[in-house]
Design a protein around this nucleic acid. Structure first.
Lengths: 215, 215
DNA sequence: GTTGAAATTAGTACGAA
DNA sequence: TTCGTACTAATTTCAAC
């Protein structure tokens, strides 16, 4: 329930994969598509929606679960209704060689919903859900500041969550690419190249690349 | 499937709520707790785990769904296994009075998994999942840069996802507060106050507060 | 809000294509 | 592998308490 890095969920991609697992074909993808929208659908209904037999659906369903392609099923909760109306992002600069401690402390903070290690100015981004702004303040100044591993933080509040897709899959991209061929390419070609404003890519700070796994 | 702001998911809290809906008691919370960990559990098993009768569980389950406290059930997919090994965060500065266009364009980008409007230096943060780094580059320079509403972007890569909780609930905080009373308070009191390093809170830029809903 | 029994549906096993 | 079917177990609905 805490450390999901063993699933290779990080951006690196080459971490923690022993063997390929199963090859995912189009039908597997279709199954994932249905399941991400409706995690409680019965396997029978699932079979019908993707156009395979019930027995086949059970086999594939189990295979996807066993392989880890499906990590778990979950209910999406409305945080406001549940009493957690405030969401904040805290960008954390972590002292080198103290990641392990930082991760351990994170696990002890139930208000942390998500934490990712990033490139750029800061080392990690954590998303917290709390009941009021005071709780954010206390979270940052009392709890995070007390962790030796934490060098500095920067906090922003989330004013609105515009979009949350259950899970993005490659098939979405394909659909989009098809759309792009008809509608979007012309617009790009008309400009004769890639337009650029103030687009910044921010690389990793210092020698952090080697520290990815429990350093 | 796209705009979740009507659920009042934003940090503001006072947005979009017509009436209170149902009062959530401890048992409701327990149900949510179980369901966020195992979205496919049968209602019968759920009833047993929270210590109520099946009929009661069915009633409450339906009520939570109808009320919107449970927004949907979903399967968590391993993006790497599904072919999307790269995750990036793109911080976007949006031209004022063009939020509507920005949101519309977002909906057309299937690789965007999450988008939140934030306070601070940038106006929005979007999380994208793609198959390779080139796709991030093309996403930023070709697609985002082509949107007039986008003034500037800043991109960081996610190296590792340390933690993802299905959903944070207030009961977690309670449990934590109990733990704190025994273990954590002394440490704080011993220091005689709130310690402070380089902790920054970043407020909203310009006059963005008024623009929260479809401006 | 609970229990128990009927109706429905889900999950499993296995032979055939 | 996949499909179809028959079998068994479980879930959901609905009744009375």
């Amino acid at each position: 329930m805490s450390d999901i890095s063993r699933n290779g969920a990080g951006g690196g991609g080459q971490a923690g994969r022993i063997g390929i697992g199963l090859e995912l074909d189009d039908i597997h993808m279709k199954i994932l598509e249905v399941l991400r929208e409706n995690g409680r659908i019965s396997v029978a209904a699932l079979a019908e929606r993707v156009g395979i037999s019930r027995a086949n659906a059970y086999t594939r369903f189990e295979a996807l679960r066993a392989d880890g392609a499906i990590k778990r099923f979950t209910a999406e909760i409305d945080h406001v209704r549940a009493g957690l109306g405030i969401t904040a992002l805290i960008f954390v600069t972590v002292r080198q060689q103290m990641w392990k401690q930082f991760r351990a402390e994170l696990a002890r903070m139930p208000e942390v919903e998500y934490c990712a290690i990033t490139t750029g100015q800061h080392d990690a981004m954590i998303q917290v859900r709390v009941s009021d702004v005071a709780a954010v303040h206390s979270m940052v100044t009392d709890r995070l500041a007390n962790i030796p591993a934490v060098k500095a933080t920067e906090t922003v509040f989330i004013l609105d969550e515009v979009l949350r897709r259950p899970y993005v899959l490659p098939s979405d991209r394909d659909r989009d690419r098809d759309r792009s061929r008809q509608a979007r390419r012309p617009a790009q070609d008309a400009e004769g190249g890639v337009p650029l404003g103030k687009m910044r890519f921010v690389g990793a700070a210092e020698g952090r690349a080697a520290l990815r796994k429990d350093s």
